[in-house]
Computed example of a mutant assay.
Amino acid sequence: MAIPNEALAKLLQEIEQKATFSQQQIGLVKAQITAKAREQRMLQLTTTEVDSLPTDTRVYEGVGKMFVLTPTHEVKQRLANEGEELKSDTTNLEKKLHYLETTLKNSRDNFEQLLQAGSRS
């Protein structure tokens, strides 16, 4: 049973839009993953520097336009918490990227199948 040309054109357009949207989202997610990796590296460097300080060193954290004296163990705890959040965010972004890549692949496969089916009729 052949698909009418109008319906085929509409299906092809929808699949093409879905594929284009997926490609755009893949670009955004890859940029977000890169940004999270950069943040993670900065956090790692900061943690290394704080760990190398003697325990009695005064540590100040920026709050707005001022600096507040903060105990070293609190700074280490905050850095550890931020590291866990970044790992979680990165994992979620990688899952989203995998989903979008799968969606794009499926859209391309469906597009090709419809073109092949249309050329046979």
Rank of each mutant, 00 (worst) to 15 (best):
N92V: 10
E16S: 03
K105G: 08
V29M: 01
E85W: 09
L43Y: 06
A9W: 06
D109L: 10
K36R: 13
Q17T: 14
V59I: 02
T48C: 06
T90Y: 02
I15D: 03
K18I: 01
Q44A: 13
I26P: 04
A35N: 15
E61S: 00
L114P: 05
I15Y: 04
T34H: 09
A37C: 12
A9V: 06
R78E: 05
G27P: 00
S22A: 11
T102H: 14
M1F: 13
I3T: 10
D56I: 00
L100R: 03
R108S: 07
R58T: 07
K76W: 01
F21N: 04
G64Q: 05
A2W: 04
T72A: 07
L53S: 06
T48V: 05
F67C: 06
F111K: 05
E74I: 04
E49S: 10
N5M: 14
H73G: 05
T55Y: 13
E112R: 10
A35R: 14
E39M: 12
E6H: 15
S22P: 06
H73E: 10
T103A: 08
A37S: 13
E84W: 08
A2H: 02
A35D: 14
R120Y: 03
F67W: 04
Q113G: 00
V63T: 07
L53M: 14
L8K: 06
E49G: 02
N106T: 09
Y99D: 03
K76I: 03
G118W: 03
T48E: 12
Y60S: 07
T72R: 03
K96M: 11
E85Q: 10
E94N: 15
L100N: 01
A2Q: 08
Q25F: 04
I33A: 14
Q113R: 08
I15K: 10
Q44F: 12
D56Q: 02
T47M: 09
T55W: 08
T34R: 12
E112I: 12
K105M: 11
E61V: 07
S22T: 03
H98N: 08
T72P: 00
S52A: 15
S121E: 11
M1Q: 10
E6Q: 15
Q77T: 02
A7K: 07
E94Q: 15
L79F: 02
D56G: 01
K96I: 07
V29H: 05
M1K: 12
R120I: 02
A35M: 13
T72M: 09
N110R: 02
L8G: 00
L28N: 09
E74N: 01
E49A: 09
Q25N: 04
E94R: 14
Q116F: 11
A37W: 10
D56T: 03
I26D: 00
L28K: 07
I15A: 10
Q77R: 06
K30N: 05
E14F: 09
L93R: 10
T47P: 01
L43T: 08
G118F: 00
D89S: 08
D51W: 08
T47N: 03
L53R: 08
T20P: 09
I33S: 11
G83Q: 02
G62I: 09
T103P: 03
Q116I: 15
K105N: 14
